[in-house]
Design a protein around this nucleic acid. Structure first.
Lengths: 212, 212
DNA sequence: TCCGGTATCCGCCTAAAGTCTAATGCCAAA
DNA sequence: TTTGGCATTAGACTTTAGGCGGATACCGGA
C-alpha cells in the first residue's frame, strides 16, 4: 500500500513548502491536503493516512483541541504539530498531547525535512534544546502578579506615559514615594527604565488608567 | 540591468514559496533574501533593488515601521507587504504608508503570482478593501510617516526602551544629537516624553503576540 | 547662481528620572 | 510577645532626559 501523508494547514503557500519537503523525504508518498480541521477529518474518514502534519492555528480550530481529537480518533497515527509559535511551552504541550514532533514555522526547509524523516522512522522530533524559548509572557505575568497594589497603580501611570509628578498627585503621595515604588517595580519586572516597564505592561494588556 | 527582487521574511519555508512565485512571474529576476529588517537594509545598501516583498513580522521589527523606513529611504521602489494578518485594516494601513500591494499569508500561490505581476506592471494590488482607516490612526500614521530616517531610527530605539547613550552608540552620533532628534520626534508625534512616544510607536505595531 | 527651508549635528542648562539610605507601620511566624 | 520581613513613606543625591541656541550641509526653486 502506498504511503499517504496529510497536510493540514490553512496557508496555501506554507502548504506548498510542506509539499516540497515531503517530496524530498518521501518521493513516492501520496499527499493529501486540508485547509481546515473539518476538512482534515473528512480526508481521514475517506482513507487511511500514515502521517499528519497539523497546523495548530486554522480557521476552525486554534489550539490543541484538534491535536487531541486526532490522537483519540487515530491513536496509532503519528501527528507532527506545526505552529507559528516558537515558545518552548507550546512544543512541550504538543508532545504532552501525543504529538510525534513539533516544528515551528520559522524552521528551515532542511530542518523540516529532517523532522519529517525522523518521525517517519518512528522517532520523536522536538526542537533543539538550545532553542527552547522560555515562555516569556508567562514569566512576566508572574512578575506582574507579584506587584503590590500601590506598585500596580504606579505602573499603570508609567505605562500611560504620565510624569511622576502626575502619578504622585493622583495617588496623593510624594513624588519621592512614587520614584521608590517605580524602582521596586523595575526590579520585579527586570527592566531598567520606565519605557521598558511600559512595554512589559503593554504586552500583557494591563488595564489603562481611567481619565486622560 | 537585471531585475532584482528582495524577499524579506524570517520564515525560510515561506521565503521558499515566495521564491517559487517570483520564478514563475519573473523567471530572469535576481532574487535576494533577507531574514530581518536590518539584513534587508544591508541588501538595499549593497545593490539597487526593483521590488521588495516585506514581511511585517520579523525578529527585529513587527509593524509598519520597517515599511515606513523603506518608503523613506527608497521612495520610488515598490514594496509589497506580506503579513500573517488578514484584517482589512492592516491592508489599508499598509497602502496608506505607500505599499504597492498587500498579500496575506493565507493567499494561494496563484494569488501571489497575480499580485506580484500586477505590482511589477506598476499597479497597486490589494485584497478587497472593505475597511477604512480611522481618522485618528490616519493622523498618527501621517505623523509617523513625516519622520526623517534618522528620527525614525531614534524612535525605534526609544520604543525599544533603550537609553539615549545606547542609541547614540548604535547610530554613531553624540548623545546630544540623539536628544535633538528625540525632541523633534516628540513635536511631530505630539507627545511630551519618550514613554508616550513609545506608546504611539506601539500602537502602529499590529497584533501583539496574543499567545496561545 | 543665490537663497530659504530643513536635516543633521553638538554644547550647555534645567527638569525629570532613578538610586540609596532610612524611618515607620503592618502582619505572620516563632 | 517578640522578631523578621515587606510595604509604604520620604529626603538627599546621582544620572538621564529633554529644551534651547547655534553651526554645518544639503537641496530645490527663484
Amino acid at each position: 500500500m502506498r504511503e499517504t501523508i496529510l497536510l493540514a494547514d490553512d496557508h496555501p503557500l506554507f502548504r506548498a513548502a510542506l509539499i516540497e519537503a515531503v517530496r524530498r523525504v518521501a518521493p513516492g508518498a501520496e499527499i493529501v491536503e486540508a485547509e481546515s480541521l473539518s476538512e482534515a477529518r473528512d480526508r481521514l474518514a475517506d482513507q487511511s493516512v500514515d502521517l499528519v502534519c497539523l497546523d495548530l492555528h486554522m480557521s476552525d480550530s486554534s489550539g490543541f483541541s484538534g491535536l487531541i481529537e486526532l490522537r483519540q480518533s487515530h491513536p496509532g497515527m503519528p501527528v507532527v504539530v506545526i505552529s507559528a509559535s516558537q515558545s518552548g511551552g507550546a512544543a512541550a504541550r504538543a508532545l504532552e498531547f501525543g504529538a510525534a514532533g513539533f516544528i515551528p514555522k520559522t524552521a528551515s526547509l532542511d530542518t523540516l525535512c529532517m523532522a519529517l524523516g525522523a518521525v517517519r522512522d518512528g522517532e520523536i522530533w522536538a526542537p533543539e534544546t538550545g532553542d527552547d524559548i522560555t515562555d516569556e509572557a508567562a514569566e512576566q505575568a508572574q512578575r506582574l502578579a507579584s506587584l503590590t497594589p500601590a506598585q500596580m497603580r504606579v505602573l499603570r501611570g508609567v505605562a500611560a506615559g504620565q510624569l511622576n509628578k502626575q502619578i504622585a498627585f493622583e495617588m496623593d503621595i510624594t513624588e519621592a514615594t512614587v520614584k521608590a515604588h517605580i524602582t521596586a517595580v523595575f526590579r520585579k519586572l527586570g527592566v531598567i527604565n520606565r519605557t521598558q516597564a511600559s512595554l512589559v505592561a503593554q504586552a500583557l494588556e494591563i488595564e489603562p488608567p481611567k481619565s486622560a
